[in-house]
Amino acid sequence: MSTAETPKRKPNDFKSDLKPIWCPGCGDFGVLASLYRAFAQLDVDPARTVIVSGIGCSSRLPGFVSTYGVHTLHGRALPVAMGVKLANPELTVVAVGGDGDGFAIGAGHFPHAARRNVDITYLVMDNEIYGLTKGQVSPTSLTEQKAPSTPWGNLETPLNTLAFAIASGAGFVARGASFNTKALTELIVQAMEHPGFSYIDALSPCVMFNNTQDEWKELVTDVAPDHDIADKVGAFDLALKGGFTLGILYKELRPTLDEKYRHLVERTPDSDIDAMLDAFSARKGVAIGKPLA
């Protein structure tokens, strides 16, 4: 990512000419600031970096960064990001979005991105609410939470996204918080350096519809220093424990999908359209009972 000749980029170098449209005090500002810092720390090249998002307040993030960006459809950031990375594995690809985008409408894509281990970082700004549509519950909202669509209190159980990530085969699972940008920056750096799918649940309170900032600040604790991040069962325990444990829960190195495809292409003997057409030649004939060519 970094080159010796050019001076290192600073966080401000990654700002675009668009100003964020978020409400004053929104947690997403802290996440964006952490992302700028992580990009600067890694000295990523904006011309070789793509941020992919879905729909929602947090999914407007790519517009505020000077890299390439794809603001896709609600829930579709991950498959689009996968396509970008597989088409050009040289690119640095970061997917971002909210908890509704990633775990309600987009939940069908999450386990597949995780198990395939495409080398992308997925940063979810989790506010446990739908902000853009004005305050309905999300899949991570607490049981009994009152919201416009749950006037008598939420009847459902929230999704544990960290446990979901570990169970799905994510090789890097961590939690950070918008109100702790230093630690979040470091998590983003490590996630981006991790070869493979990395997931960060970034607590990012919504000041308008679910202002949990003071409460969450009280609830967060750091991962214990003796936690073994290679221990999948231990990581799962930690994820299920409840409360908000910040830090890396789990890390596992596996070959990435993009790498596997590169190897597949390398070991497949080259062919071209004319050779492929030869196999269909009517005169040469083909094997009976088998698919032609």
Binding site: R76, L78, G83, V84, L86, A87
Partner: peptide, 22 residues
Amino acid sequence: ITIQCEDEIASLASVIGASYAG
């Protein structure tokens, strides 16, 4: 590269991502 996706939405979404990347 050919990939079997998790559904048709992911198929076209990944195609769009790949095309975005050139």
